Amino acid sequence: MSRVPLFLKIIVGLFFSAVLAFCVQAKQECFSTSPNLKNGQKWRVAYVQGGPYIHYRTNLISLLEALRDLNWVEPFQLPEAKSNDDTEELWQWLSKNIRSNYIEFVADAYWCGQWPKQEEEKAAFKEKVLSRLRTSSDIDLVLAFGTLGGQIMAEKVHRIPTLVMSIADAVAAGVVESASDSGFDYIHARVDSTRFERQLELFHRIVQFDVLGIVYEDSDIGRSYAGVTRIQNMAKKLGFHLTECKAPSDKTVVVQKTIECYQYLAPIVDAVYLTYDVNIKEAHLPDIIAPLLAYKRPSFSQSGPREVKYGALMGMTDVSYKEVGFFHASTMAKIFNGAKPRQLNQEFPNPYRLAINVETERQIGFQFPDSILMMVDEVYTDIRTVP
């Protein structure tokens, strides 16, 4: 029997040491995404959100499509949605109709808080969710959507792996300790720590405004969703003046006051940054966009192309939803293959892909530079009205 030379042993040893070191440094790459079972049983998944919001449904669908592409679920055809922000109807459909040998979406493990405003309401909703998770061992992973959903799950009273999705700023909201470390073995939140900054740099470079207007709900959640502190910091960095209008958090008046804020800002600012706002539905967008068109104010949608369809000048495209969905699905698959959420990379920046509305461009007398047109992925040629 021939002996292996010592120098070859050393080389092989160094190679495997390098691989191990790489796995420690790039931990997320060392776990498989292949479908498997939990001790012969399907993985049971739960869902929690603070309230209905259109981007939650879109992100959930993107996750499902990525799980399909990774072979965790079989191909599916979703039913037509009755409402663009109704995830409960979608979740119940998934629990009954998604075919999978590996995952079960648990019908009675869905929680939606209907945006509780008072602290006692938030505490009651949190207890409703956590009491189930504390007293039952039937859930293997939780999908927590948005700031409130993430805050509920970032508690030490449970140890259930949790993916926090569709959250504006997980670090500022206290859901994770930092972009590189969640601080909890069982929490993972996607972080794009410079998303708003990149958007504002691009918007300022294109429009060169001196005064920017923003509107947000005057609450901790409202400020977190809108990224107010980050916008204020960018105003200082880029040297523009920021004019803010705060809508009260009272459910009975918040939408009307938000619309009035845009009416107030339109004549006194150079441009408007349309921030995330869970109170605003598609039916409200024409009233928000109308004063911006009347006063010929360029606008940038912080959240995506929905506002661009209704007349915002520009925003980032839906193309990134597919990529974000794959990021979350891969993370979920790695957890089911033995990874702790804390071990996996949280940072995933949105790519620069722009949506523009050329009818808005025409109405406000604006012209995009050719260099910007090269970045455009989606073009809307009219301004949608609510049916």
Results as ranks from 00 to 15, higher is better:
Pro267Leu: 07
Pro267Cys: 05
Pro267Trp: 03
Pro267Lys: 02
Ile268Arg: 09
Ile268His: 09
Val269Asn: 12
Val269Leu: 05
Ala271Trp: 05
Ala271Phe: 01
Ala271Gly: 09
Val272Trp: 10
Val272Asp: 12
Val272Cys: 11
Val272Pro: 11
Val272Ala: 14
Tyr273Thr: 05
Tyr273Lys: 02
Leu274Arg: 02
Leu274Ser: 02
Thr275Asp: 14
Thr275Gly: 14
Tyr276Arg: 05
Tyr276Ala: 15
Tyr276Phe: 15
Tyr276Asp: 15
Tyr276Lys: 02
Asp277Ser: 13
Asp277Cys: 15
Asp277Pro: 15
Asp277Tyr: 13
Val278Glu: 15
Ile280Tyr: 00
Ile280Glu: 01
Lys281Phe: 04
Lys281Pro: 00
Lys281Met: 11
Glu282Asn: 12
Glu282Val: 10
Ala283Trp: 01
Ala283Asp: 07
His284Val: 03
His284Ser: 15
Leu285Lys: 13
Pro286Trp: 13
Asp287Leu: 12
Asp287Ser: 14
Ile288Tyr: 08
Ile288Cys: 10
Ile289Phe: 01
Ile289Leu: 15
Ala290Lys: 09
Ala290Ile: 00
Pro291Trp: 04
Pro291Arg: 07
Leu292Met: 14
Leu292Thr: 08
Leu293Lys: 08
Ala294Pro: 00
Ala294Asn: 00
Ala294Glu: 09
Tyr295Phe: 06
Tyr295Glu: 11
Tyr295Asn: 06
Lys296Trp: 04
Arg297Val: 03
Arg297Phe: 00
Pro298Val: 08
Ser299Gln: 01
Ser299Gly: 02
Ser299Ile: 03
Ser299Phe: 05
Phe300Ile: 07
Phe300Glu: 08
Phe300Leu: 12
Phe300Tyr: 13
Ser301Lys: 00
Ser301Leu: 00
Gln302Tyr: 10
Gln302Asp: 14
Ser303Phe: 09
Ser303Trp: 08
Ser303Met: 14
Ser303Gly: 04
Gly304Phe: 10
Pro305Asp: 07
Pro305Ser: 09
Pro305Val: 02
Pro305Gln: 05
Arg306Phe: 06
Arg306Gly: 03
Arg306Ala: 14
Arg306Lys: 10
Arg306Tyr: 04
Val308Gln: 03
Val308Met: 06
Lys309Gln: 14
Lys309Cys: 01
Tyr310Glu: 01
Tyr310Ser: 11
Tyr310Lys: 06
Gly311Lys: 05
Gly311Met: 10
Gly311Ala: 06
Gly311Phe: 03
Gly311Gln: 04
Ala312Cys: 12
Ala312Glu: 07
Leu313Gln: 11
Leu313Ile: 07
Leu313Pro: 11
Met314Phe: 03
Gly315Glu: 05
Gly315His: 06
Gly315Cys: 08
Met316Ser: 07
Thr317Gly: 14
Thr317Phe: 04
Thr317Leu: 07
Thr317Glu: 09
Thr317Arg: 06
Asp318Pro: 03
Asp318Ile: 06
Asp318Glu: 11
